[in-house]
Amino acid sequence: MQFKLIINGKTLKGEITLEAVDAAEAEKKFKQYANDNGIDGEWTYDDATKTFTVTE
């Protein structure tokens, strides 16, 4: 399945997509990506659109 991450950071904004088996795997990958890029914020997930959002 394809999942999307919307980044609303203080210095980094944008979207990325990835393939994952389920939402838990996608969340783990997205949070690792955010951590690697210094993004720390409030996370939400919309199951209907398979979209994660992180807002700093």
Results as ranks from 00 to 15, higher is better:
Lys10Leu: 04
Glu27Val: 11
Val54Arg: 00
Met1Ala: 07
Thr51Glu: 11
Asn35Val: 15
Glu19Pro: 05
Tyr33Gln: 03
Thr49Arg: 15
Trp43Thr: 01
Asp46Asn: 07
Lys50Arg: 09
Ala48Phe: 15
Ala20Asp: 08
Thr11Gly: 09
Ile7Pro: 01
Asp36Leu: 08
Ala34Tyr: 02
Lys28Glu: 08
Ala26Gly: 03
Ile39Asp: 01
Asp47Cys: 10
Gly38Leu: 13
Trp43Gln: 01
Glu27Pro: 00
Ile16Val: 15
Thr49Trp: 05
Asn8Ile: 09
Glu56Leu: 07
Thr44Met: 13
Glu25Phe: 10
Glu15Cys: 07
Tyr33Ile: 10
Lys13Thr: 09
Thr55Glu: 13
Ala24Asp: 08
Glu42Tyr: 11
Lys28Pro: 03
Glu56Lys: 08
Tyr45Asn: 01
Lys13Met: 11
Thr53Leu: 10
Phe30Ala: 04
Lys29Tyr: 11
Asn37Ser: 09
Lys4Thr: 04
Val54Tyr: 02
Leu12Ala: 14
Thr55Gly: 11
Asp47Gly: 06
Gly38Glu: 07
Gln32Arg: 12
Lys10Gln: 12
Ala26Asn: 00
Thr44Asn: 12
Val54Ala: 03
Ile39Ser: 02
Asp22Met: 05
Val21Thr: 09
Phe52Ile: 02
Ala34Asp: 00
Val21Glu: 14
Gln2His: 13
Lys10Met: 06
Asp46Leu: 05
Thr55Arg: 14
Lys13Leu: 06
Asp36Trp: 07
Ile6Asp: 03
Tyr45Arg: 03
Val54His: 01
Ala26Lys: 00
Lys28Asp: 06
Phe30Lys: 00
Trp43Cys: 02
Glu19Ser: 09
Leu18Ala: 12
Lys4Asp: 08
Thr11Asn: 10
Asp46Gly: 02
Ile16Asn: 03
Ile16Phe: 08
Ala24Leu: 13
Met1Glu: 15
Phe52Thr: 01
Asn35Gln: 10
Thr53Gly: 06
Gly14Ala: 15
Ala48Asp: 09
Thr17Gln: 07
Gln32Val: 12
Ala48Tyr: 14
Thr51Val: 15
Thr44Leu: 13
Gly14Glu: 05
Ala48Leu: 15
Lys4His: 08
Val54Phe: 06
Gly38Tyr: 08
Asp22Gln: 07
Glu27Thr: 14
Asn8Phe: 12
Thr49Ala: 07
Val21Trp: 08
Lys29Val: 08
Lys13Phe: 08
Lys10Ser: 04
Gln2Thr: 11
Ala20Ile: 04
Lys4Cys: 03
Lys29Leu: 14
Met1Asp: 08
Asp46Phe: 07
Glu42Asp: 11
Thr51His: 03
Glu15Met: 13
Gly41Tyr: 02
Lys28Ala: 10
Gly9His: 09
Phe52Cys: 01
Lys50Asn: 13
Thr44Phe: 12
Thr11Ser: 11
Thr49Gln: 05
Ala26Leu: 01
Gly14Lys: 08
Gln2Asn: 09
Glu25Arg: 03
Ala34Arg: 01
Leu12Asn: 08
Leu12His: 13
Gly9Ser: 12
Lys29Ser: 07
Ala20His: 03
Lys29Met: 06
Lys28Gly: 06
Phe52Met: 02
Ala24Pro: 04
Phe52Gly: 00
Tyr33Ser: 02
Ala20Phe: 15
Asp47Asn: 15
Lys31Leu: 10
Thr44Trp: 15
Ala24Gly: 15
Ile7Tyr: 07
Ala23His: 15
Leu5Lys: 00
Ala20Val: 06
Ile7Leu: 05
Ala23Glu: 11
Ile7Val: 09
Asp36Val: 15
Glu42Met: 06
Phe3Met: 02
Phe52Ala: 01
Asp40Asn: 15
Glu42Trp: 09
Asp22Tyr: 12
Ala24His: 11
Thr49Glu: 07
Glu19Ile: 05
Thr17Ile: 10
Ile16Leu: 13
Tyr45Asp: 00
Thr44Tyr: 14
Asp22Arg: 03
Glu27Ser: 12
Thr53Trp: 12
Leu18Gln: 08
Thr11Asp: 04
Leu5Pro: 00
Glu56Ile: 09
Phe52Asn: 00
Ala26Thr: 01
Lys31Asp: 02
Ile7Ala: 02
Ala26Asp: 00
Tyr45Ile: 02
Asn8Ser: 11
Gly38Met: 08
Ala20Pro: 01
Glu25Ser: 11
Glu42Gln: 13
Glu25Cys: 03
Asn35Ile: 14
Phe3Cys: 02
Lys4Tyr: 06
Ala26Trp: 00
Val21Asn: 11
Ala34Gly: 08
Ala34Gln: 02
Val54Glu: 00
Asn37Phe: 06
Asp36Tyr: 14
Gln2Asp: 06
Asn35Glu: 13
Lys4Val: 06
Ile39Tyr: 06
Val54Asp: 00
Tyr33Pro: 00
Glu25Met: 08
Leu5Asp: 00
Thr55Cys: 04
Asp40Trp: 13
Phe3Pro: 00
Gln32Asn: 15
Glu25Trp: 04
Ile16Asp: 02
Leu5Arg: 00
Phe3Val: 02
Glu25Asp: 04
Phe3Gly: 00
Gly38Ile: 05
Glu19Tyr: 10
Asp22Cys: 03
Asp40Arg: 13
Ile6Ser: 05
Leu5Ser: 01
Ala23Val: 13
Asn37Glu: 07
Thr44Ala: 13
Gln2Ile: 04
Gln2Phe: 13
Gly9Glu: 03
Asp47Gln: 05
Tyr33Phe: 05
Lys29Gly: 13
Phe30Gly: 02
Leu12Ile: 12
Thr51Cys: 05
Thr49His: 11
Glu27Tyr: 15
Glu15Ala: 13
Gly9Pro: 06
Asn37His: 08
Gly9Leu: 14
Thr44Asp: 10
Asp46Pro: 00
Glu25Lys: 05
Thr49Ile: 10
Asn37Gln: 12
Lys50Trp: 09
Ala26Val: 03
Lys4Ile: 05
Asn35Ser: 06
Ile16Lys: 10
Met1Tyr: 11
Gly38Ser: 09
Thr55Trp: 11
Met1Phe: 12
Glu27Gln: 15
Ala34Val: 09
Val54Ile: 04
Lys4Glu: 04
Ile6Gln: 12
Lys28Tyr: 15
Glu19Phe: 09
Gly41Ser: 01
Leu18Arg: 07
Phe30Arg: 00
Trp43Phe: 09
Trp43Pro: 01
Asp22Asn: 12
Glu15Val: 06
Ala23Leu: 06
Gly41Asn: 01
Ala23Gly: 09
Asp46Gln: 11
Gly41Met: 02
Asn37Arg: 12
Thr53Gln: 07
Thr49Cys: 04
Asn35Pro: 01
Gly14Pro: 04
Asn35Leu: 14
Leu5Ile: 03
Glu56Val: 05
Met1Gly: 12
Ile7Trp: 14
Gly14Cys: 03
Leu18Met: 09
Tyr45Phe: 08
Thr53Lys: 12
Tyr33Cys: 03
Glu15Lys: 07
Ala48Ser: 09
Thr11Phe: 05
Glu56Asn: 10
Asn35Lys: 09
Asp36Lys: 11
Ile39Asn: 02
Lys13His: 13
Glu42Leu: 11
Glu25Val: 12
Trp43Val: 02
Asp40Lys: 14
Phe52Val: 01
Met1Ser: 06
Ile6Arg: 12
Lys10Val: 12
Phe3Arg: 00
Thr11Arg: 06
Ala48Met: 11
Tyr45Val: 02
Gly14Trp: 05
Thr49Gly: 11
Thr17Pro: 04
Thr53Ile: 15
Lys13Ile: 09
Thr53Val: 10
Gly9Gln: 08
Val21Gly: 08
Tyr45Leu: 02
Ile39Gln: 02
Met1Cys: 04
Met1Gln: 13
Asn35Phe: 09
Ile7Thr: 04
Tyr33Asp: 02
Val54Gly: 00
Ala48Pro: 15
Thr11Leu: 14
Ala26Met: 02
Thr51Arg: 03
Lys13Gln: 09
Gly9Arg: 06
Thr51Gly: 02
Asn35His: 09
Thr53Glu: 13
Asp40Met: 14
Thr55His: 08
Asn8Tyr: 09
Ala34Leu: 08
Ala24Ile: 06
Ile16Gly: 02
Ile39Lys: 01
Met1Ile: 13
Phe52His: 02
Thr11Gln: 14
Ala23Phe: 15
Asp40Glu: 05
Thr53Ala: 14
Lys31Val: 15
Glu15Gly: 10
Glu56His: 12
Leu5Gly: 02
Thr17Asp: 11
Lys50Gly: 11
Thr44Glu: 14
Lys4Arg: 06
Gly9Asp: 03
Tyr33His: 07
Lys31Trp: 08
